[in-house]
Design a binder for these strands. Structure first.
Lengths: 144, 144
DNA sequence: TATGAAGTTGATATTCATTATCATGATGAA
DNA sequence: TTCATCATGATAATGAATATCAACTTCATA
């Protein structure tokens, strides 16, 4: 999915909800797309402020909420209590390897694990909705 | 592991840290052990207050922290933002199936998934520390 | 069993992330 | 251009968790 696609998804979502465009929303989306992934709200705030200093903190949260609603963003509540937001390509689910020293995120996917998870849902009579797998460890460069 | 074992672990931990026993700590541990698992701090607070009304909120948090430190308790930060504490039998790691309607927790374990996770750590050169797998869905009784 | 150093407590203040409020400003269909 | 509606920034408010502090316990020692 290109940035253009993402922007269109956002526009369409605003349209269906009778919401309006705004410079702030576009600016936030742009920085969100351009930046590395897995930002905190505060980190995104700092990024956006560089180009659009007038943007307020509340608008960051409001826009992140919209992005989550339209599927472009995923909210990650980590075990250390922080919340991070990552750009989500709907077509590409993944889990995370997280370095507990430097905070590095690696996106991983193991089809076999995914399959076994569905088997677990099934075994307990659950209707699967989503899952959350975070693998915490120490990355190669931190482990020297 | 019996409750008696757990209490001994807690006592030993206090001893090694030169910490003291107290009625409050024992009362909290007892309720924590007796109750169902996966309590919020507030739920535990309410439980404890029934028997020991004078116990303050801060002491609940302080004691939960100690219990986590000595391995009797695991803190779960859930995707809905709530934090729950579960009694942890060190010998028995498990993951969770969580019903998004009624909040039911089912403890599950798939040795094959565990094995594949270690393979993932390995494939990316990570030193494994821990992981976190939450499966969200709708349980049988909520799906009727 | 009395002492006292050190740890513990409850109440409360504080912090921090997030959300709600509200007066003012921006958007866009007509 | 109008104007109903929505969005915004500033700020207040919330809620969970932690820090502070004076008063109270604990427990090793005398």
């Amino acid at each position: 999915m290109t940035n253009r696609d993402a922007i269109e998804i956002f526009h369409n979502y605003l349209a269906t909800k009778n919401l309006k465009h705004s410079e702030q929303r576009m600016s936030i989306l742009q920085d969100f797309l351009d930046s590395g992934k897995h930002l905190t709200a505060h980190e995104l705030f700092v990024l956006v402020q560089k180009k659009t200093p007038s943007v307020g903190f509340a608008t960051i949260y409001r826009t992140l909420k919209l992005l989550c609603e339209c599927g472009l963003c995923r909210e990650l509540k980590l075990d250390d209590g922080t919340t991070r937001y990552e750009y989500q390509d709907e077509t590409q689910h993944h889990d995370h390897l997280i370095c507990t020293k430097c905070g590095k995120f690696v996106e991983v996917l193991d089809p076999e694990i995914e399959r076994l998870q569905d088997k677990l849902f099934d075994a307990y009579g659950f209707l699967p909705q989503r899952h959350r797998l975070d693998l915490y460890g120490i990355c190669k460069s931190c482990n020297k």
